[in-house]
Amino acid sequence: MKRLAALAAAALLATGPALAEDWPSRTVTVVVGFGAGSTPDLLARLVADGLQEKLGQPFVVDNRPGAGGNIGLDAVAQAEADGYTLGVTIPGPLIVNPMRMELMYDPGTDIRPITMLGTQPSVLAVNAELGVETLDELLEMLRADPGAYNYASIGVGSISHLAMEMVALASGTEIEHIPYTSSPEAVAAVIGGEAQMATMPPLAVLSHAAEGTLRLLAQTSGERMDVVADVPTFAELGLADVQAEAWNALVTTGGTPDAVVETLHDALAELLADPGMQERIAALGFQPVQMTPAEFEARIIEETPRWRSVLEAAGLLHE
């Protein structure tokens, strides 16, 4: 009986209010707005694993795919501001989509940026059976048969969406947009023929390009990135507007205590500086990056007008 009482007391103690200083004292959820197997998902799993080891509590990845990542970021925005819900996001839901549509959350107040984790180029890949070898040939093909082609994307507001809208603009024709919820799904659609082209993370297309089922025409980064060194940039090919890095970043709920953010940031800084971790991140096609929350916030502010002009050019700006 005494033992039972002691156990009951222990159970009671375990439920006391969580203090920010004690963070993390239970499982932390890392929400990803894309399907399993997508690059944000894989990066999130890698980082979650590292944080788990550093901080001693389970970090579990929770996929909430859909609407270009907005659904996942919304889940982070609506969570308790206690640091037990983190999110891995791309620029779309954080910067682009708030300018494109009404959202349930305001990234400025409902989301607290922590750090960028890595950046990657996005690569324009076409189904090899199209017989198109270069971006110019693709544009010609689009012009010859306007409105006949589809492109796949990982969702609205992503680089995979906007880059293709810019290509459409350059061709002077329309390409039908078919959104998916992860890069493997979108790539499967291009290989299967449901769509003819897609701008995708390198990891999603490289093995298929090696098989000969996809052909890589251009990449979105400012300079050629190592993983796809033989693919020209859009800028080299005369489409200077299509220049963006598909970075992935870690965020949490707006209003999360500073103590939590600091603990998290310190653990991340150590983690991302580890050569083993950098190697693993690079294996996913990413260039590892790390910054302080303040630097990341500054970067978001700096990128906003660039995205705005892209949206304006593509006619996608929300009034």
């Binding site: 009951a8 159970a11 009671l12 439920t15």
Partner: peptide
């Protein structure tokens, strides 16, 4: 569920 599987279910709350 509490002891065996470790679910976050306290036996009593105040």
């Amino acid at each position: 569920f509490r002891m065996g599987l470790g679910l976050p279910l306290p036996a009593f709350r105040l």
